[in-house]
Design a protein around this nucleic acid. Structure first.
Lengths: 213, 213
DNA sequence: GGTAGTTTTCGACTGTGGAGCGAAAACCTC
DNA sequence: GAGGTTTTCGCTCCACAGTCGAAAACTACC
């Protein structure tokens, strides 16, 4: 579960309540119940701690099966990537906290690798899909969106270019409203929203594409 | 397990020996043994029917968990994509055959969706990785490589462009040899090989890339 | 051996879309 | 109205993919 908070990409961790790795930070999760879907299971386990309605996007990452990933017993795990919009702040219990992905504590199991893989997946998809809808509030300005991209990608992004690219692709649409300028003044920013709030892929990237368009 | 044969992308299927879907065509696979890795399991099950050394690339697709995917009992499955170079023709038993992905028979479980997902994954990766190494023989001409791309992508590809793109990216390198022209004559073709035979990604596609390179 | 036919290869041109920059627009405060 | 701030827009640059046609290098036939 990733979210951009305080200008940084952060991941939700909780402290394990049992062995192995008792007390260590770990990604939220738990066991699959009989007859249950992996996605149902994930949502169920998350729901124990946070409000799952905040989850704007959920996708499967990978199933881990290394026999030594759990020192106690052989165990498979399917990792998921969940994204939470920046405008919500779900209440979390005591043993649960957000941590910057760029400075993770020691994590249980292979959870460090999973968290980093989730970030990589997000970074890649930011560039050829509209996933950013899951990081952004319903309505936002280009500058605000830019900050989300900077936090998630880990490098500068020009607002000019971001706007042009996303508009050209038809990912964003203007709402028509404008944002009141801050105390310092400045031209009021136009507001935008994502045209779709479900994952969509920009075909633009397939090189070696069919001839004669 | 996909391979380009007779100019078409084909998938290896075998006929199920037990319920459910007894006698139906299905993707090769089987159960996971305790303490085993998913990849080990896949290779093991394949080895029962074909020579696994032919497998040039193997990657995980997705873990399926829909409760009704198996009518008899609740069962998870992790799908993998395997690629076999076009120059080998592994011996297969009676109940096992290659089928064109574009014209699949009725398949057991959700195997039709999996096969199509595998093809999609392959198509996408052909455009931003060097996966083609796993479809191609060790040494080949541009025309031969073009035919593989055409078969896998399902649309025309210009040899000129293919050569330029792959050379520019440093994916291919000339071997220095040349191929004898056929009976009809023609300029002898230069031979190439993949510089690496392990999956590598062309960063080229990340749009919104870091500034100041 | 010259001519026609075939296949490969190369160079030149075009077009698209992302990146960068600076100026203009639209607002604030003093 | 002057100066400062933030957003937006237009222009240019550039990397590459896509297209086309001609040259290169060979065979076969007369």
């Amino acid at each position: 579960m990733l979210q951009v908070r305080e200008g940084r990409l952060q991941v939700l961790l909780w402290q394990r309540a049992r062995e192995p790795f008792l007390g260590a930070w770990s990604l939220p999760g738990g066991f699959l119940k009989l007859g249950e879907t992996l996605e149902e299971a994930i949502r169920g386990h998350l729901a124990q701690k946070v409000d799952v309605r905040e989850l704007a996007h959920l996708e499967q990452l990978e199933t881990l099966s290394e026999p030594d990933r759990n020192p106690l017993e052989w165990e498979l795990a399917t990792a998921y990537l969940g994204l939470v919009p920046a405008d919500v702040d779900p209440a979390v219990p005591e043993d649960t906290r957000w941590h910057p992905v760029s400075r993770l504590p020691d994590l249980a199991f292979d959870h460090r690798a999973i968290a980093l893989a989730g970030r990589e997946r997000l970074r890649a998809k930011l560039s050829y899909t509209n996933v950013a809808f899951a990081l952004a509030p319903p309505v936002f300005t280009i500058s605000e969106l830019r900050e989300l991209y900077v936090a998630a990608l880990g490098h500068e992004v020009s607002a000019t270019n971001l706007q042009r690219v996303l508009l050209r692709r038809g990912v964003l649409e203007p709402t028509g409203e404008r944002r009141e300028p801050g105390r310092a003044g400045g031209r009021p920013a136009a507001c935008y929203r994502f045209r779709s709030r479900r994952l969509e892929i920009t075909d633009q990237f397939a090189v070696l594409r069919p001839p004669e368009r």
